Amino acid sequence: MPENILFEKYGQTIENGRVIFRENEEGKQMFIIQDGIVRISKTIDGKEHVLAELTKGDFFGEMAIVTRVRRTATATAVGNVQLLSFDRAGFQGMIEKNSRIGLNIIDKLCRRLQHANHQIETLFQRNERSLIAMSLYIHFMEKGGDEPFLALDRTLADLSKTMDMPENAVLSQLTSLAEAEIITIHGNAIRLRDKSKLSGLAETLPTKR
């Protein structure tokens, strides 16, 4: 189905600054950008954070017709925007008549999933690092003294058990902290080099609300 015919049937023009949908609203349509820019944002701790700016060929709002969940973000037009909008039945019909668009959407969904997996992996690694930093900070503060140190073998065993991580993974994180000049590792001794950096890293853990 040619693009001009698609626009005649499914198209709409959104004026600059207009909100296409808001976070937490119920949604029954997904959108494909034909021209212009759409800003995707989310409110976190009372502040708006821009997640992405989408352009021609990008799509958004698909979760509303795939899983029928509420909108997880807000979409706003940046400049005048031309969109194709589809409800569930319209989307299925469009896919049946234009396999190229369907394959393009599948490709983009796969890329999004890959990106999401990478973000989750990065967040998990950061949490591991922060949890280890917090544990080290607590132990160093409990030790006190002029030059407190922790036994490397005992620390590896304790952290491995507490965090359910292999000892080599814990050692990798400790080595990373040493490379960042936050701690030093000599023989079987771990010594604190930069108390403020270790404290700051421990405080990067997300808090529950």
Rank of each mutant, 00 (worst) to 15 (best):
E128M: 13
D87M: 08
Q125E: 07
D58N: 12
Y10N: 08
S176A: 14
K9I: 03
A116H: 11
T122R: 04
A89D: 15
V38S: 08
E8T: 12
P206L: 05
E121A: 15
I44P: 05
S99M: 08
L109C: 03
K108S: 08
G11L: 12
A77K: 00
S99P: 02
Y137Q: 13
Q34P: 00
L131G: 02
G11R: 08
R112D: 04
V19L: 09
G90P: 02
K143N: 06
S41A: 12
D107F: 15
G61E: 08
A202L: 03
D107I: 09
H49G: 01
R100E: 14
A178Y: 01
G144L: 06
E121C: 05
T162W: 11
S160V: 13
K97G: 01
F86V: 06
A180Y: 02
H139A: 15
P148C: 02
D164L: 09
V19Y: 12
K161P: 00
Q92C: 04
R126Q: 12
T207E: 15
G57P: 11
K42T: 05
M1L: 13
A89R: 12
M141T: 14
M141K: 11
A89N: 08
R111N: 06
L205K: 09
P2K: 04
A180C: 06
M163H: 14
F31W: 13
A77C: 04
R88E: 14
D194T: 09
T55E: 12
D146H: 07
R191A: 14
I120C: 02
T72L: 14
F86R: 03
R18G: 00
L109E: 03
A180G: 00
T74A: 02
D35R: 13
A151R: 06
D35V: 02
P166V: 12
N16D: 15
A178R: 14
R209Q: 10
N80I: 05
A64F: 07
D194I: 07
I14D: 03
E48Q: 13
I190L: 10
D158P: 00
M134C: 02
E23A: 01
A77E: 02
L174C: 07
I14M: 09
V170S: 10
N80E: 15
